[in-house]
Amino acid sequence: MPAEFGATPWGRAWVRTIESTSTAGPNALLPRARTLARNTTTVVAAGTGHVEADVAVSGEVCRVRIDLPVWPDETQAEAARLVAKAMAEHRGMAAGDLPDMLEADFRRHAISIAVRLEEQHSGCTCRARPRPCVHILATIYALAQLVDERPALAVELRSATAKVTVAADPDWVVLSDLDPAGFYGD
């Protein structure tokens, strides 16, 4: 069975930001963060430049928001080019997926998918010190799982322009997009 966190190289890049071996020994909060991610963390939003999650701990909910710097314009352009090239070489990818080759391509071009902890601007409603608190770590684990499920999210987090997702399903119209005034047409 695939790893619980970081089953794909895309999610793994995010896991590595908190399980980094370069720091002085492993963070003692990580086991608890994984438990929280597993059981009580709900990512409420994950889009270009930010992630928000609710982490429930003994009846209370901590709200976490992490702001992620988007890629500079030239990096976004480069990423878009690499995505287009990879998708052309891998026609018929399943919806929301990206070829793992692309992740290697990004690394070769020094484009980092994930954001190192020290470059993230994170906030949590808990009072714990030091930062990042266990709730922020849990949020990153949960984010890694979302990225595993839909690798395209990895690129969306860092770029507003690199179009990797297909447009909304043309066969359906979401109710909230409908204007009640014109619904019956007369």
């Binding site: 069975m1 695939p2 619980e4 089953a7 794909t8 399943a94 929301g96 997926d97 799982q145 595993d148 499920e149 839909r150 690798p151």
Partner: peptide, 9 residues
């Protein structure tokens, strides 16, 4: 990939 993205989750 299907296992990674769907079966395991």
């Amino acid at each position: 990939r299907f296992r990674q993205r769907f079966v395991a989750p």
